[in-house]
Write a protein that binds this DNA or RNA. Structure first.
Lengths: 341, 341
DNA sequence: CTGAAAGCGCTTACAG
DNA sequence: CTGAAAGCGCTTACAG
C-alpha cells in the first residue's frame, strides 16, 4: 500500500549493476567479486531491501514450507509434536503451515488439495479418525512431494512413518506391574480399529503370557476415546466386578487418572492395593497424587524426527521412491502410582 | 518431478480458448458465458487441473496466509488460541503459518523479517517475555500488513489488541471468595513486569478494598512464572506464616493446584478451611480434587476474535490506520474448591 | 463474451 | 566477473 517495496531492479539501478548480479551477490554466488558483494549488501541494508520470497518460491518452485495436518491442535500430544516440527523446521529454514482435520475425512481431503496448490515442499500428517484409506494422499506422492506420517499412520500403503513401538511399550508397562507383584492385571483399552490401541492391548497380553499370568478377559475394558469420563466408568466397573484387579495398565493417562481418583474415593490405596500405569506422560501425570507411572511417548521427538526425515527427502536430489519407518524408543517413567516398597 | 503439473495454458490449448478465458471461467467471472464455464470446469476436472496458488499469490500480491507468532506452541493456552485462529482462518479461506519465538527477542525479530518476505496478508502475535518495545513490528505496519496482538500485548504503541479484562476477572474471583465468607484472602501473583499479572493483583486489591477487607501484604506472594513448583513453595510459606489465609486467589491454575495438594497433605480442608480460586480453566481444573473454581479466559475465542479482526482489516479497502482493542468477557466457573455450604 | 499482451519479482542458462 | 534475456503461471486492464 504505502511505500511500495524495493525490488532487485531498484537496487540494480541505484548501483549501476544488472538485476542478475544483485541476485547473485545477495545469494552469495561464488562468481561474484567480494567487492561487489559488499557494495550490494551495504546498499540493500541501507534501502531496507528484503527479497520477495513469494517471487523466489514461484520462480524456483520451492516454497520452503511444510504443510502439517493434525486432527486437533489443542490436544497436548499434537501441540508437542507441532512444537518439535516447528523447531526443527525453523532451524533448517522451513516454515510450517498447519491445518486441523478435526477428524473429518472430508476436511482432510480438502486440506490435501490446498496443500498441493500451495506447492508445499513436504507434508506431515497424523491421520484423522475417520480415515480408513489413503488414496487422497497418493496424489501428493505422485506430484513428488515427500510425505511423512506420524502416530496414526496408514496401514494400506507404504509410506514414511514415525511411530513408537506401542506393543513393546505396553509390554514394558505390563511387565513393570508384574515385577511390582501384581497378579490380577487389568487393562483399559481404546478403540480396536485404531492400530496403536490394538498394539497396546497385544503387548499387554504378551507380557502376561510371558510371565504365565492368566489373561482375565473380564479385566480388559474397552472405551471409545479413552476419555476421562470413560475412565471413570471403567473404574466403577472394576469396583463392582467379582474379580478385583491389583494392577491396571491404562492405554492413556486420562483414564489412569480417573481410575486413581475413583479408587481413592472408594478407599482403595494406590499403589498398595492397586498399582496403576498410564501412557503418554501428560503433564497431569506429574501432578496427580500419587504421581503416575507412565510411558514417555516422545511427542516432541516425533515432530523432530518427522521433520528431519521430510527435509532429507525434500533435499535429496535422487528421485527414487523410498519409504522409511522410524520407531522411536519410548521410556517407562516410574512414579509413585506403581512403586511398592 | 514426475508428471509436471498441468497449467492454465495446457487447458487453454486443449479447449481452444485463451488462458485469459480459462482463468476467468475458473474464477467464475461474470463476463464468461455459462456454457464456456461448464466446458472449462469439466475439462479441468478431467485433467485434474488445480491452480498454482503460488503463481496466483505472486501475481495478486495476496497470499491468503496469516502469520502467527507465539512464545511456545506446547503451552495449552496458546494451542487453544492457535486452534481458534486456524478454525476461523480455514473457514474464511486463509492458511496459518506458525512460529515460536521461544520468548527470545532475537528470534521474534527474525520471524518478523521472514513474515515480511513471505508477504503474509496479516500477522497475529503474542509477545515474548523479553520483548519490551515493539519497534520491530512497526515495519509490518508500514508495509500495510494488518497486525493483531493477543494476551501479551504491547503497551508502547497503538495496535489492535485482543485481551481479557484481567482486572475485572480478578475482581470477580476475589469477590466470589469474599461472598463465600473468606476474611483473610491471599493472592499468588506472577511477574509484575507482565501487565496481565499486575492487573490481576490490582483487581484483587480493589475487590478487598470495596468490601472493606484489609489488604494483608504478607498474604500476597510473588512468583516468576506461576509454575507448579513455585506454587508449592508459596503454599508452604502460607503454612508457616502466622497469619493463615482462609481463601486464596491464584493468578493461574497451576499454582492453585499445587496449593490444593500441599494444603490437603497438611490436613487442611478445601474448601472448608481454605477456599481456592485459580485462573485460566486449564483441563486440570476439572480433574483435580476438589475441582477448581477458576476463570475461563476464552483462549479459543481469543484466537477467533483476533483472526476475525485481522481478516476484516485485510479485506477492508480503505487504508486509514485504525486500531481496535477488543476485550473478551471472561466467566467465573464455580466448582468445589470454593463452594461452601 | 473472448483474446492478446504485459507484467508481478525473482533466477539461471547462456554468452561474453 | 557481469549482463541480457527468457520465463516461472497466473491475472487483469485494454481492446474488440
Amino acid at each position: 500500500m504505502k511505500n511500495s517495496r524495493i525490488t532487485l531492479k531498484d537496487l540494480a539501478k541505484d548501483l549501476n549493476l544488472s538485476p542478475s548480479t544483485i541476485s547473485r551477490a545477495l545469494g552469495n554466488h561464488p562468481a561474484i567479486s567480494d567487492a561487489t558483494k559488499k557494495r550490494v549488501q551495504k546498499m540493500a541494508e541501507e534501502l531496507g531491501f528484503t527479497p520477495n520470497s513469494i517471487a523466489s518460491s514461484f520462480r524456483k518452485k520451492k516454497t520452503q514450507t511444510i504443510g502439517v495436518i493434525v486432527p486437533r491442535i489443542d490436544i497436548h500430544f499434537h501441540s508437542l509434536v507441532i512444537s518439535g516440527i516447528e523447531e526443527f523446521a525453523y532451524n533448517n529454514g522451513y516454515n510450517v503451515t498447519i491445518f486441523q482435520s478435526k477428524d473429518s475425512l472430508k476436511r482432510e481431503k480438502e486440506i490435501v488439495k490446498i496443500l498441493q496448490n500451495k506447492m508445499v515442499d513436504g507434508v506431515i500428517v497424523c491421520l484423522g479418525i475417520e480415515t480408513k484409506t489413503c488414496d487422497h494422499f497418493k496424489k501428493i506422492n505422485k506430484l513428488g512431494i515427500p510425505l511423512v506420517f506420524y502416530d496414526r499412520v496408514p496401514t494400506d500403503f507404504d509410506a514414511n512413518k514415525i511411530i513408537i513401538n506401542d506393543f513393546e511399550s505396553a509390554y514394558l508397562a505390563t511387565e513393570h506391574l508384574i515385577k511390582s507383584g501384581c497378579k490380577r492385571i487389568g487393562h483399559i483399552s481404546g478403540s480396536q480399529t485404531t492400530t496403536i490401541f490394538k498394539a497396546r492391548l497385544e503387548g499387554f497380553k504378551a507380557a502376561l503370557k510371558k510371565h504365565h499370568i492368566p489373561i482375565e478377559e473380564s479385566l480388559i475394558l474397552f472405551t471409545n476415546n479413552l476419555s476421562y469420563d470413560e475412565g471413570v466408568k471403567c473404574a466403577e466397573k472394576y469396583l463392582k466386578s467379582d474379580l478385583k484387579p491389583d494392577g491396571i495398565f491404562c492405554a492413556n493417562d486420562y483414564t489412569a487418572v480417573s481410575v486413581i481418583q475413583v479408587f481413592r474415593k472408594a478407599e482403595i490405596k494406590i499403589p498398595e492395593d492397586v498399582a496403576i500405569v498410564g501412557f503418554s506422560n501428560y503433564p497431569i501425570s506429574k501432578i496427580i497424587e500419587p504421581h503416575l507411572t507412565t510411558i514417555n511417548d516422545r511427542a516432541f521427538q516425533m515432530g523432530e524426527a518427522a521433520t528431519k526425515l521430510l527435509i532429507r527427502q525434500i533435499e535429496e536430489k535422487d528421485d527414487s521412491i523410498t519409504s522409511e519407518i522410524i520407531t522411536l524408543k519410548t521410556e517407562l517413567i516410574v512414579r509413585e502410582s506403581s512403586t511398592r516398597n
